[in-house]
Amino acid sequence: MVSRTSARRPFKPRSLVRPVVLLLLTALVLYPLLWMLGTSFKAPEEILNNVSVWPQSWTPANYPDGWTHFDVGFGRYFLNSFLVAVLTVVANCTSCLLAAYAFARLRFRLRGLWFAVMIGTLLLPSHVLIVPQFVMFRSFGWVGGPWPYLPLIVPHLLATDAFFVFLMVQFMRGIPRELDDAAKIDGCGAYSIFRYVVLPLSRPALVSTAIFSFIWTWNDFFRQLVYLSDLEKYTAPVALTLFIDSTGQSAVGPMFAMSVLSLAPVFLFFVAFQRLLVEGINTTGLKG
């Protein structure tokens, strides 16, 4: 593709459009983030009064202060978040892939009904499920146990994230069915087709799922708040809210510093994984 664009060198003004548009867009999109970065270096009373990006007095101490603000170092919260996020990624990628394959590729009775039910589970606002779910998980004995992350992870093992099932179904339906038919002629059953045709071609879907699972888990606040009750077991988003008690003490500077830091792992995770997304399918199956 690169060669194609370079073959068109003569059209100079047009080749400038893309970089200029990109830069403008980037500036627009990044400004709020730069503001956040700048603010993380402001002194507390300045944060509340100074709206410019640039701090008047540089306060890098927000970072060490934030890191050691609680009895438990902030690194611990990142680790906890990372643990929950990675397990969720693995669980989602496995369980949702299996379900998606069934929905997208296999014919079985009641498939349409189950698919509709699956989409239906996406539609109920989650806030009314929090209490019943909590009651249920508690009756399972999962709440307040020695490993409090059970209620946060087990549901993902069972493909309850319909979003990802649907995502993968849509991707799989983009894989030509002729491939299956060819494989069937070669004597493959549903399992072999899954293993040798669909799985390798599902990389973009899997990578997207991984990216989203990771990031959403990293940002999820409410469920983690409800199920985690031990300062040492808190995750980063829960810990971030500890900085500001709206009725009293607040540590705005450290909060901003840790917010910026908590973006770093997700950003790196994304930049690393999007490569897989880009290489995607072109190099694997189709071109042979």
Partner: peptide, 23 residues
């Protein structure tokens, strides 16, 4: 692929029955 379909669907069905449907 009736049987295979349900084999692949098992985790989701379990999750639906045990975790999603009740709440």
């Amino acid at each position: 692929d009736g049987r295979a379909g349900y084999v692949f669907l098992t985790p989701w069905l379990l999750g639906f029955a045990a975790i999603t449907a009740i709440p």
